[in-house]
Nucleic acid binder design. Structure first.
Length: 321
DNA sequence: AACGCGACCTGCGAGC
DNA sequence: TGCTCGCAGGTCGCGT
């Protein structure tokens, strides 16, 4: 479910509620939610208990919490040593990280409960709730970034990246994102534009909703061959992705139901702003403004739905577009 | 390298 | 009422 804006909403919530606190107890209610932690439940819990959360970092849809195993201020003069391990979270299709008071009943799909050191006016539990279990938590090493830049968006960025996220590219909201690198790699591909936008190794953070929204805004078709894209067109679709994700973030993310919520359980309001995704059979808003009636079309592509306007996002013809 | 597919899961609404 | 089907915001790994 969550794409970059939704994960960033969660990151900001965790900065407010969890940063600096110590994990005091860990309950894994469903081991499937830590299946990516190869060493199992005991190792997972044992390593987390007593760890202090230094920061919350995000690249694309991956979120991780660099950890320290020493109490804050243990060595008053010496600077904080660089963290070596992080708690990784990926929300998959239906994962939620929720701050809850201990008095609140367990959610139906509560999978992992982290108890936190007491903090005035703040809930004492961080809960991982996940209906479909495609997401999960696990521990991962922090390794130097290949380019020496920050691993991702953080309050105090470090040139370290979670090993399990090292294979994905920077996302369009990352200040170190390089359009030139993106464009060169895009042109070298023999594939369609939407497939490329969804490839987290090329550009991260974009999922099925925002890919369709970005393509609509840029007036480009999902099947447009990437090796024919002009620089201006690539820039247009990337800027469109940036814009739609920035707008979604400002609205608190996109949610169609209670499945996607921020750390306080509130839904985002971006659904009403969607121009393409989920609008099958409804008028294309841009065409309507120009006095043209064009109905948005839904097609199967990559085993999922793609929404386009047949008038302003025409399908590329063979060799021409 | 690219692509298609299955696997990993639960739940909801539509249709019969 | 209950059954099956298709569908859902993601990622990973395998075969061709």
């Amino acid at each position: 479910m969550p794409e970059l804006p939704e994960v960033e909403v969660v990151r900001r919530g965790l900065v407010n509620w969890v940063r600096g606190r110590t994990i005091t107890a860990v309950e894994v209610l469903d081991p499937r939610s830590i299946r990516r932690h190869a060493l199992g439940v005991e190792d997972f819990a044992g390593n987390l208990e007593g760890a202090r959360v230094l920061d919350i970092v995000r690249r694309g849809k991956f979120l991780w919490l660099p950890l320290a195993d020493t109490p804050a201020g243990a060595s008053s003069a010496a600077p904080e040593p660089a963290p070596a391990v992080a708690l990784m979270a990926h929300l998959g299709m239906s994962g939620q990280l929720l701050m809850q008071d201990g008095a609140v009943a367990d959610e139906k799909h509560l999978k992992i409960r982290l108890r936190l050191s007491a903090a005035a006016g703040m809930p004492d539990q961080l809960r991982f709730v996940d209906q479909r279990i495609f997401g999960g938590l696990f521990l991962t090493a922090l390794i130097p970034t290949p380019d020496g830049g920050p691993g991702g968006l953080a309050e105090t960025p470090l040139p370290l990246i979670a090993e399990e996220a090292a294979h994905i590219a920077r996302d369009p909201l990352d200040p170190h994102f390089s359009f030139d690198v993106f464009y060169r790699r895009l042109r070298a591909r023999k594939t369609g534009l939407k497939r490329a936008l969804l490839d987290q190794a090329l550009v991260s953070g974009i999922g099925n909703i925002y890919a369709d929204e970005a393509l609509w805004l840029a007036k480009l078709h999902y099947a447009r061959p990437t090796d024919t894209l002009r620089r201006s067109e690539a820039l247009r679709v990337l800027d469109a992705a940036r814009q739609v994700m920035t707008d979604a973030l400002a609205a608190g993310g996109t949610s169609f139901d209670s499945l996607y919520v921020n750390v306080n359980g509130a839904s985002g309001y971006f659904e009403r702003s969607l121009n393409a995704y989920g609008r099958e059979g409804q008028e294309c808003r841009r065409c309507a403004e120009a006095g043209i009636v064009s109905l948005m079309k839904r097609e199967q592509f990559m085993n999922r739905s793609s929404y386009t306007c047949p008038v302003c996002q025409p399908r590329p013809r063979n060799g021409r577009w």
